[in-house]
């Protein structure tokens, strides 16, 4: 059984492609949910890009008002949190519940950094009187980023639930579907931001 577990761990040198699973890690239901979420974000991104076609100067002007340094910190925070989640999955595959819990808590810490920085950005916009009605650029910027912000909160709730169960010894090397399910959702949140960051903050 241990050999089979090792075979499915991408971070173990004993990985055997012949034993690779045909299905993604975690519960298949979360993947249906993830694909639905990704489709919604794809529509959002397309709408942003095509609306920009008729408002290039407006989008370019107000994009410069955004805090790219905050966006950089947030990107680093989400990538780091995703990496921590990878380590959490690796840990539980080696039956290290305590290490899995610590990696998950670290990932949530990075998620909290993201939320704190983004909340700071929103506070700054509110102080400036910026809202959804200010102009088309801010309508897209605020709605897109806030939609993603809500997903980060949702992801942190899921990671917290997984961490609590891991701490209680609820997962083992043989049965850790819950950890992989939570991890998959969190990676989706990271994946969406990897497109959102350059699109809204950099591309002009």
């Amino acid at each position: 059984m241990t050999q089979a577990v090792d075979a499915l761990d991408p971070d173990q040198g004993t990985f055997d492609p012949d034993q690779a699973n045909r299905y993604p890690p975690g519960d298949l239901a979360i993947w249906i949910f993830i694909l639905a979420e990704l489709l919604v974000f794809a529509v959002f991104f397309g709408a942003y890009a095509f609306t920009r076609m008729d408002n290039v100067e407006l989008f370019n002007e107000f994009q410069l008002h955004l805090d790219r340094q905050a966006a950089l910190i947030n990107t680093l925070a989400l990538i780091t949190s995703s990496y921590f989640v990878v380590r959490a999955v690796s840990a539980i595959k080696q039956n290290h519940s305590a290490a899995c819990t610590r990696w998950l808590i670290a990932a949530m810490g990075m998620g909290a950094v993201f939320l704190a920085v983004k909340t700071g950005e929103y506070s700054h916009h509110i102080e400036q009187g910026i809202n959804l009605s200010t102009n088309t650029f801010y309508m897209f910027y605020l709605s897109l980023t806030f939609f993603h912000y809500m997903h980060v909160i949702m992801g942190m709730v899921i990671l917290a639930a997984v961490a609590i169960k891991a701490k209680k010894g609820g997962y083992t090397a043989q049965e850790h579907t819950g950890v992989e399910t939570g991890a998959s959702y969190w990676h989706m949140v990271d994946l969406v931001w990897l497109i959102l960051f350059p699109l809204v903050y950099v591309m002009r």
């Binding site: 993604p24 995703s82 990897l194």
Partner: peptide, 22 residues
């Protein structure tokens, strides 16, 4: 910049989400 983002997304999918081994 878009190309870099797509490469990053592919890396997350393949290595972090574990789809590259499927």
């Amino acid at each position: 910049v878009l190309g870099i983002a797509i490469i990053k997304g592919h890396l997350v999918g393949a290595y972090f989400m574990g789809l590259g081994k499927l």
